[in-house]
């Protein structure tokens, strides 16, 4: 039998290398496109609907989350995610998608035992560590600026 180190080398030899530059460029372009569309949405809300800036941002978030969730439910989003990867996962679209896909998976296992308890299966970490880091940043802010 081979030792583990030797086997690791053998496996590595046969595993195709990932094209990181290509993934980076795709993620940058797709993520940027979503940011651009969000900004267009904000501008339209301000100019045509007379919203103030903070309200327009909140509405844009809601609209993007709704569209992403709807596309997940209609079965398009997973195919796009598997192609463009981080470009769709990192923006709010990815967060919405992770919740909707969990909800779809467990909807038949009961409202409490299935959907409810698995809703944040993937998004739970984002919420938890998001809240914790926000707390510590606020503490830092108070210490620095008083």
């Amino acid at each position: 039998m081979m030792n583990k180190e030797e086997y690791k080398k053998l496996v590595k030899k046969h595993v195709p290398k990932k094209n990181k530059i290509k993934s980076l460029i795709i993620a940058f372009l797709v993520g940027g496109l979503i940011g651009f569309l969000g900004q267009v949405c904000v501008n339209i809300l301000i100019s045509s609907f007379g919203l103030i800036k903070t309200e327009a941002f909140a509405w844009t978030g809601l609209i993007i989350i709704f569209i992403a969730s709807l596309l997940t439910a209609l079965g398009f989003f997973d195919n796009w995610v598997s192609k463009v990867k981080a470009g769709l996962i990192i923006p709010t679209t990815g967060f919405a998608h992770s919740i909707t896909s969990c909800a779809l998976d467990y909807k038949k296992d009961g409202l409490i035992t299935g959907l409810g308890s698995n809703f944040f299966k993937l998004a739970g970490s984002v919420i938890l560590y998001g809240v914790i880091s926000a707390f510590f940043l606020c503490v830092l802010e108070v210490i620095i600026h008083g």
Binding site: K18, D78, V81, S82, K85, S101, D105, K121
Partner: peptide
């Protein structure tokens, strides 16, 4: 997929392997 990996509709990133 549901049991071993990610939710069905999540479309997690697939590797060449």
């Amino acid at each position: 997929e549901k049991q071993f990996r990610y939710p069905v509709e999540y479309g997690s990133v697939k590797y060449a392997t």
